[in-house]
């Protein structure tokens, strides 16, 4: 079976972490599952236990991680500084490379940390299911938009760069009678970026999006808005999960769950919400 990626989104406090944990525990009884907290205000350790996050305790076939985006941001900026050292080596004489530290404060630096962390998880782990416990709405949607937006920037720059290369080739054909093809390093970097973002966009296009909502009107309205935004991005596999409901509303409904004892009381939770888990499995098998 192909690996499946699931994103849990929704208004703050609706129970994304709880639902992520429940889905992960259910699936990890038979397959390799990773649950990754992408919410900077991580709660995963509170639900699963710090020992599981720190790999000191094994839970079935489950890998659980609270992702550190700052680490990815810092590593990337270190890499940029290295690149600058060779091109702008005269700056090292003036100790001016430290001024590049300001990039850490760039408006999309945090988003970049998330993108790089996501890419690393997808490429470098071998799992059957990837469950991403996302931050509240605005940050989650911005993450999804970032990948599409960056891809469009890269495509526009590639088109412009192609025109420059074609022009250079025309000039060399007129002057020298032959088309002199020189390696354009900028174009190579742009093509690498295009491959990078196309890969991630394809992943997002085929992922499952579970929007968690509670009984209150506000979380319903926000869930509707999230669905509209995801559909605008052409994501088809979008489902609502009703959490903390007194009675089942449809197959994707969970009752009141004691989040302090999710792991210990999972067998009881599974028995009481069988329809929910079977329905999730059905969605993920499509």
């Amino acid at each position: 079976m192909d690996r499946k990626i699931v994103f849990l989104t929704g208004k703050g406090g609706v129970g994304k972490t709880t639902v992520s944990t429940l889905v992960s525990l259910y699936l990890s009884s038979r397959q390799k599952v990773g649950v990754f907290s992408f919410d900077p205000a991580h709660n995963l350790a509170d639900v699963l236990g710090r020992d599981v996050i720190n790999n000191k305790k094994k839970l079935q076939n489950l890998v659980a991680k609270e992702v550190d985006f700052e680490h990815w941001k810092r590593e990337y900026l270190k890499q940029i500084k290295q690149g600058f050292k060779s091109s702008y080596s005269y700056l090292t004489a003036y100790n001016m490379l430290d001024y590049f530290d300001i990039f850490e404060q760039a408006p999309d630096a945090d988003n970049l940390g998330m993108v790089l962390a996501f890419d690393d998880i997808i490429r470098n782990t071998d799992l059957d299911f990837y469950i991403f416990d996302m931050p509240p709405t605005a940050v989650a949607l911005d993450f999804f938009r970032t990948i599409r937006r960056n891809m469009r920037w890269v495509e526009a720059l590639i088109n412009l760069r192609k025109k420059i290369i074609e022009k250079k080739e025309i000039i060399s054909r007129i002057k020298l009678g032959v088309r002199e093809i020189e390696t354009d390093k900028v174009m190579k970097r742009l093509e690498n970026l295009q491959k990078f973002y196309s890969y991630l966009q394809n992943i997002l296009n085929s992922s499952v999006y579970l929007i968690v909502r509670n009984t209150d009107q506000l979380s319903h309205l926000e869930a509707d808005r999230i669905r509209t935004e995801l559909e605008k991005m052409n994501f088809d596999l979008v489902y609502f999960v009703n959490n903390k409901y007194p009675e089942p509303k449809d197959e994707l409904t969970l009752g009141m769950i004691n989040t302090d004892a999710v792991v210990d009381s999972f067998p009881e939770i599974l028995a009481e919400n069988k329809d929910f888990f079977q329905h999730v499995e059905h969605i993920l098998s499509k």
Binding site: I80, S87, L112, N150, W153, L157, R189
Partner: peptide, 24 residues
């Protein structure tokens, strides 16, 4: 397009700037 930020134009995303700047 890549450096227009000095004139108040929008800058490409950090990932793109970071990858291209050493060659520009």
């Amino acid at each position: 397009v890549n450096f227009g930020v000095v004139l108040g134009l929008p800058m490409p995303p950090l990932h793109i700037t970071g990858e291209l700047l050493p060659y520009l």
